[in-house]
Nucleic acid binder design. Structure first.
Lengths: 354, 354
DNA sequence: TTGAAAGCGCTAACAG
DNA sequence: CTGTTAGCGCTTTCAA
């Protein structure tokens, strides 16, 4: 149980060849004839040899690893992570993932760890785009000369020396609003949740402000009563649905729900409460997470495009790693907003029990 | 921008000391006098030196890294991950996380990667507890002599040579059922979702079967009509609430909801629909995720205990790593079930080990 | 306290 | 095709 770990030297001794021959055989070097290779591989297996990637990396100077730094373990990172995995699998790279739990100190430590571990690239969705920790993290990464692609966009877009991949909230909101206008809606309500704690609440504050501006810019009235501000973190959409069903017309003919949960909860709530969407009231979602393929929700919505962002980010990173793109100047890749129309509903549109 | 990376040799040259002195200074070796240390650190910073952990690991033979292999990025892993992080931070270890997306091949590849990267320990929540890939993964890990703690319990509990930390579904269900009986309920309904795809559906099938057995064992009748089987992945609890509100008494006085989502959706649905819980109907949740501290839900429930499991797992792993526990025989650490009433802890048995 | 030297396990350039 | 050798960047004895 406690024997020393095997090395290529042990395998060499066992097979009577020189250890560099073992090294070659194990890496399937075609210069070693097939039978010898096989013999060596077999011996390696038998001895329980496990290649040492630490030594390997040191020797040829490449770790074949990329670091992923994320704020937390949320569903919107699932699709991007999937893209990272697929792409790096194909390129024979592996991922090292860190979650900093929205803690900038942890984030910085993690990035340093990546640098010291000589990952060949980093994809980073930062906690914040400012502050001393942020600036320091950037300096660290630059000192370490590691290619970095940021997930998201910095507002002013000037001070970050790395590539960025993201979407502009204002563009997405404008697209959504104009979509509703295009469908003839003139009294549009907003479902939001500005009082929630943490990042989600902050996002809602930002979105509501932007949207207000867009209403104004279009000369569209926005009644205070038509802003539905949820306080239930998980089922706020339901409460809004209940509120709507209590209201007699005239009421908004459409609701722009400013996040995924809210939109879906609202949709479901309206259905359960007997208010027909979209006949009696339309719902437009925002940043809906998930794959179109799944098409689980008959919910028309401004798409989050997280998979697309992930894909673009990892592709860009590998471009840099492969030297196909100079690291300067850093590019800002803006993912255009898109509306996905619901209706591609799953079979069990009508829920049933048995 | 494209200069070579600095090494301790560069720092040594810059400061005029021998490179081993630099190595010592950088690791805060007290044999190097304070002023020299400072001078060296400053020079290192100035040159943009970043220590090379690959080389460091090779030299002293310890990577100070532990590998975490998880099935996917779900909320029930958030608390355990937090425990892993906290504990390894304190021990000056770092985490390398992999998600295999319920793909056993990916899982195995990832574990091999851990082995080749010489992680010092692995915490592993397996996709399945059987099958050739599983067996192979175990063999790999054993060959690599890596300490492993499994998250979860194998049903028969015999064939896995590693420590396991988990809870027994039957115990948890029994605790829940007896809790309801203790509160005087005699007609108890079940909210489940056996037809969902994937792991969640499978879990429901298992839970429903176990619970049926428990009803029988207690001579308790279980009406077919009182099994509410949701088909909506996200808002099934709502549909069940709607169904319940349609039913005139006599109806169940309590519903045992067999997962977190279902329970919370049901609870919220009942409230929105005007059925008072628990006055008119009681809801007992199961495997509710989250921190008691948050106490966000006034939902009495059999707790998932994921944080506790994470804590026990990482502690056990470090015990092995530190040699404080022999790796044989592997222990099975069973986390006792617990009911949390509306966010406050009810019962806390001492953990049993076998 | 610091310098010198021997590795850690492997890759890769160069001979043979 | 295979052996030889020189590192990769660092830690860690062992001297001095």
């Amino acid at each position: 149980m406690n024997g020393k770990r095997m090395t290529i030297l042990d395998v060499a001794r066992e097979t009577g060849v020189y250890y560099s021959t073992v090294s070659r055989a194990l890496r399937n070097d075609r210069r070693i004839p097939e039978p010898t290779r096989l013999r060596i591989r077999l011996a390696a297996r038998r001895l329980g040899y496990v290649p040492n990637r630490v030594a390997r990396s040191l020797a040829h100077g490449a770790t074949h690893t990329i670091g992923i730094m994320l704020t937390d373990m949320q569903s919107y990172f699932v699709a991007p992570m999937d893209e990272f995995q697929n792409f790096s699998d194909r390129s024979n790279y592996t991922l090292s993932v860190h979650f900093c739990s929205w803690d900038q100190r942890r984030e910085r430590k993690g990035l340093q760890h990546f640098a010291e571990g000589r990952v060949e690239g980093v994809i980073w969705a930062p906690v914040q785009w400012e502050g001393p920790e942020f600036v320091q993290s950037i300096a660290d990464l630059q000192a370490a000369r590691i290619p970095v692609v940021m997930l998201g966009l910095q507002r002013d877009q000037q001070s970050v020396p790395f590539h960025q991949v993201g979407a502009k909230p204002a563009d997405k909101l404008a697209l959504g609003l104009d979509y509703l206008l295009g469908r003839g809606h003139r009294r549009i309500g907003i479902a939001t949740a500005t009082n929630l704690n943490g990042q989600r609440g902050r996002l809602h504050v930002e979105r509501l402000a932007l949207l207000r501006g867009l209403f104004e810019a279009r000369g569209l009235p926005l009644l205070a009563d038509d802003i539905f501000n949820a306080v239930d973190e998980d089922y706020g959409g339901f409460d809004i649905a209940a509120e709507l069903s209590r209201r007699a017309p005239p009421r908004p003919t459409a609701i722009f729900a400013l996040d995924d949960f809210l939109a879906r909860g609202l949709m479901k709530g309206l259905r359960v409460l007997g208010l027909k969407a979209p006949e009696e009231i339309s719902v437009l979602g925002f940043d809906v997470v998930g794959d179109e393929a799944a098409g689980r929700w008959p919910l028309t919505s401004v798409w989050l495009e997280s998979r697309r962002m992930g894909e673009l980010a990892v592709k860009q990173l590998f471009k840099i790693i492969r030297g196909e793109a100079t690291n300067t100047p850093p590019q800002t890749i803006i993912v255009p907003p898109r509306i996905v129309e619901g209706g591609s509903v799953r079979k069990n549109e009508t829920d049933r029990f048995f």
